[in-house]
Design a protein around this nucleic acid. Structure first.
Length: 605
RNA sequence: GCCGAUGUAGCUCAGUGGUAGAGCAGCGGUUUUGUAAACCGCUGGCCGGGAGUUCGAAUCUCCCCAUCGGCUCCA
């Protein structure tokens, strides 16, 4: 809306019509942020204020304070807020000329407010005041502070001014606010539920993986059950990739600096690479060793080491390779963000006329894998170039337009919700990312499919065309689950550790009722093992009830209780982790059931 | 990397200047059990690492390591 039009509107409904399209809930939360700011001002009169928007589940405000906040400060701030809310101070709106606002905030040393105003184009700026707190703000707000619903301050955190790590670090307080106590309680309950599913907690409880102070940060270790899970995940993707025409290759874990100079990563990606190793031989920089941070240059070397005819394209190289990336220490999180990650990566070398088919193939493969894992809630981010800034991208207009149209067409053809991100494309080509929502509604970026026009140039890749001349191929980079570690983190939380039978590291736990049943339990174990069922026996001297409880907590799909009756009848008493007791059934019948469910990757038990 | 918090037994945690604790787990014994925790006993700790202050440090100070919450949401 233009400034003039806005002023006209505002003269009628000043408070409601001002700029931001806040929902009533967001408006209330934004007002809560102002009340929090006043509370902070009461405690720290010298506080400097920056911004305090409503966000997804609440609000925050960023302050510059004379001392660091700790969690112990929050109750006091909350108490001040309660008083302000209870007093029902009206939110008063005003509009000041820029100059007046600059003078006012300048005199108070409010440097962040001054900077904000200096960047505003308008001749007038919005001012809101409640009680003793006056803030530069475009609103809107609730009418008075008593309309602010139940709230809770959640945490303190550091946040760079304007999100820029070269600018001052401010102190952010996050809060949440709702219209009713029930909604606040529900939200807090959901947070607790999410914590129960935290893959770091479940990873330890289910004996999947661990971290050690003796290893660098971001380098997880996997116990037998976790490794089995990795193996099952990767085997499944591998089998699927083979079915889709990808060939697996192996390119080890080490490269040379020169290779990454050719790919240009050395110049753009170096801060994410582990330091080079020159060794005792004092290698030159070009010959120095690096830990492989990505596969593309290596797959390109494989491609380049042989001649290729147009007839054999596309060449599809896939690899499960462990990559090493020096992520910033502060961003590491369990398995979700690590420094040693295993990508299910692939690179397709193809003729330009094959882009559509190959892109489609990659999308289909991804969708099949999502379907198998039961991930039904996802959307696609289609990253395109900014047509205003064509100079920032490599490749001709013609190829870009064709490529973008191809990607958009393929995505639309699948009927999947997608959003276009203008200007979000990589400089070397457009891409699509799959954003998956897990059972708790959190989004994870997993799969990615990227077109690349630049690496074939960097490496002067060729294929011999029908005309006998050398031509330049196009590349696709794609990953299906992204990294095994990250995807595992998502699966753990999605399933809350209760994996489908085909993915369960332990599919069945055999529970002998008394010691005299151990021999029969062993026999059941051998028979299950012979048909490929992953089973274990609980031989501890515990009562059956304790063994069942522990099996439930371990989320094993099937508990096979064996006592006198079962031993006599070559049977097992089957209990599901869903608390359902199927009673005794012949062992052969159980084997038939579990194999059928496992082999079809069914989500049933 | 930056800001803040945290680090005590395998796990969850108590202990804030004066002899390291609990529950669970583990081990031993008793019990031999029919669908979510039997009973009794025992073991287990460079209190994350290093340096300092102190008669004395898990506790106070500094450095390092690791873990957690953030650092995209724009007056």
């Amino acid at each position: 809306m233009s400034y003039i039009l806005r002023r006209l509107t505002m003269s009628v409904e000043a408070e409601l019509q001002e700029s931001v399209n806040y929902t009533p809930l967001q408006r209330m939360r934004h007002s809560a942020a102002h009340v929090m700011a006043e509370a902070v001002q009461e405690i720290f009169p010298e506080a400097l204020f920056s911004i305090g928007p409503a966000i997804e589940d609440g609000f925050y405000y960023d302050f510059d304070l004379p001392r660091p906040l700790t969690p112990e400060d929050l109750p006091e701030i909350e108490q001040h807020m309660q008083k302000i809310v209870a007093a029902g101070y009206p939110f008063l709106h005003d509009r000041w000329p820029r100059e007046k606002a600059l003078e006012y905030f300048g005199n108070k040393g409010q440097v962040y407010k001054v900077e904000i105003i200096e960047n505003l184009p308008d001749a007038e700026v919005g001012i809101y005041r409640q009680n003793n707190f006056l803030d530069l703000c475009r609103g809107p707000h609730v009418q008075n502070t008593s309309q602010i619903g139940p709230f809770k301050l959640m945490r303190v955190a550091g946040a760079y001014w304007r999100g820029d790590e070269h600018r001052p670090m401010l102190q952010r307080i996050y809060g949440t606010a709702w219209f009713s106590q029930e909604e606040l309680d529900q939200y807090l309950w959901q947070l607790e539920e999410a914590q129960k599913r935290d893959h770091r907690k479940l990873g330890r409880e289910l004996k999947l993986f661990t971290l050690s102070d003796e290893l660098p940060a971001g380098v997880p270790m996997f116990y037998p059950r976790g490794e089995m899970l990795r193996h099952l995940m990767e085997s499944y993707v591998r089998e699927t990739q083979e079915r889709y025409g990808y060939q697996h290759v192996w390119t080890s874990h080490v490269g040379k600096v020169h290779l990454y100079k050719t790919s240009k990563h050395w110049y753009t990606y170096r801060e994410n690479m582990f330091p080079i190793m020159k060794g005792e031989q004092e290698l030159t920089e070009d010959d120095a060793y690096i830990l492989k941070p990505m596969n593309c240059p290596h797959h390109i070397l494989l491609y380049k080491s042989q001649m290729h005819s147009y007839r054999e394209l596309p060449v599809r190289y896939a690899e499960f390779a462990t990559l090493y990336r020096y992520e910033k220490a502060g961003v590491l999180t369990g398995l979700a963000r690590v420094r040693s990650l295993t990508q299910d990566d692939a690179h397709v070398f193809m003729r330009p006329d094959q882009i559509q088919e190959e892109f489609d193939r990659a999308v289909n493969l991804t969708l099949e894998v999502f379907e198998t894992y039961g991930l039904t809630d996802y959307w696609i981010r289609l990253s395109l170039r900014d047509p205003q800034k064509k100079g920032e991208y490599v490749g001709s207009d013609e190829v870009w337009e064709m490529a973008e149209a191809t990607l958009r067409g393929a995505v639309e053809g699948k009927g999947i919700r997608y959003e276009e991100g203008i200007g979000e494309a990589a400089f070397y080509g457009p891409k699509v990312d799959f954003m998956v929502r897990d059972a708790l509604g959190r989004e994870w970026q997993c799969s990615t499919i990227q077109l690349d026009f630049i690496q074939p140039e960097n490496f002067e890749l060729e294929y011999i065309g029908e005309d006998g001349q050398a031509h330049r191929p196009v590349m696709i980079h794609r990953a299906v689950t992204g990294s095994t570690e990250r995807f595992m983190a998502m699966l753990i939380e999605h399933f809350a550790g209760a994996f489908p039978v085909w993915l369960s590291p332990v599919q069945a736990i055999i529970i002998p009722i008394a010691d005299r049943h151990q021999e029969y339990a062993q026999s059941v174990f051998e028979q299950l093992k012979a048909v490929g069922v992953r089973a274990e026996i609980d031989m501890r001297g515990e009562r059956m009830n304790a063994k069942i409880r522990d099996a439930q907590l371990q989320k094993f799909p099937y508990m096979l209780v064996v006592g006198d009756k079962e031993a006599a009848a070559e049977a097992v008493s089957v209990r599901l982790r869903t608390n359902i007791d199927l009673k005794s059934m012949p062992l052969t019948q159980f084997i038939e059931r579990i194999l059928q469910i496992s082999n079809t990757k069914s989500k049933e038990l």
